[in-house]
């Protein structure tokens, strides 16, 4: 009976945290990965990672939020690390809700400024193809139609433009996280 009560309380706490933070965590992850499907999957993973800890009472109720945010950040970075990127993992003590939010907002603004500036260094036709393909979301054939360039040319132009942009960003330390 005591156990049931304990589980029930943990469930309620988790449910509350889930409702309160799911959207925030999802947005943070979406910002990082830029697609809905992966963001949903990883957000789910965050809460799956947190749930057992909550149920087992391993986390102080006041620290659950911080734990969730840390898990979110680590899961994104773990995913990238698995994909070959060596990124710093932030530990629980370094991460608080405010820090999480600030870091996120800071990144949104500063990254976009840097990328905008880098985009401006591309040639017009290179920038055009990236805008149409990535920002506007046109398919290769649509871009081919709009720009009156063969599809193969669009694809190679897109590749060259992205390589160039990557090099500009790399020189500016964009990938050094």
């Amino acid at each position: 009976m005591r156990l049931l009560k304990h589980v029930s309380k943990a469930d309620i706490t988790f449910d509350k945290i889930y409702k309160e933070l799911w959207q925030k965590v999802f947005r943070f992850i979406y910002y990082k990965v830029q697609n809905n499907e992966e963001a949903e999957e990883l957000t789910q993973e965050v809460f799956q990672r947190v749930l057992p800890q909550v149920k087992e009472g391993n986390i102080n109720e006041n620290k659950i939020k911080a734990y969730v945010f840390t898990a979110a950040r680590n899961i994104v970075y773990d995913t990238w690390r698995k994909r070959g990127r060596d990124l710093k993992v932030v530990h629980l003590d370094e991460m608080r809700e405010k820090g999480f939010e600030l870091e996120y907002k800071n990144r949104v603004v500063e990254d976009n400024i840097v990328v905008n500036e880098a985009m401006d260094k591309l040639q017009d036709h290179e920038k055009e193809v990236l805008i149409l393909r990535i920002i506007k979301g046109y398919t290769i054939s649509e871009v081919s139609e709009i720009t009156k360039r063969p599809e193969g040319t669009v694809k190679s132009l897109q590749f060259r433009a992205l390589q160039k942009l990557r090099d500009i960003l790399d020189e500016g330390g964009f990938f050094d996280e």
């Binding site: 910002y31 990082k32 990965v33 830029q34 990238w80 698995k82 994909r83 070959g84 990127r85 949104v108 990254d111 976009n112 990328v115 905008n116 985009m119 990236l130 990535i134 920002i135 506007k136 979301g137 992205l162 390589q163 942009l165 990557r166 960003l169 790399d170 964009f174 990938f175």
Partner: peptide
């Protein structure tokens, strides 16, 4: 995933996409 060049290109794509 093991190809660092590709990973950086993917991140470049995501960075451009964030501009939308």
């Amino acid at each position: 995933a093991d190809n660092e060049e590709l990973q950086k290109l993917f991140e470049t794509v995501r960075a451009v996409k964030r501009l939308r």
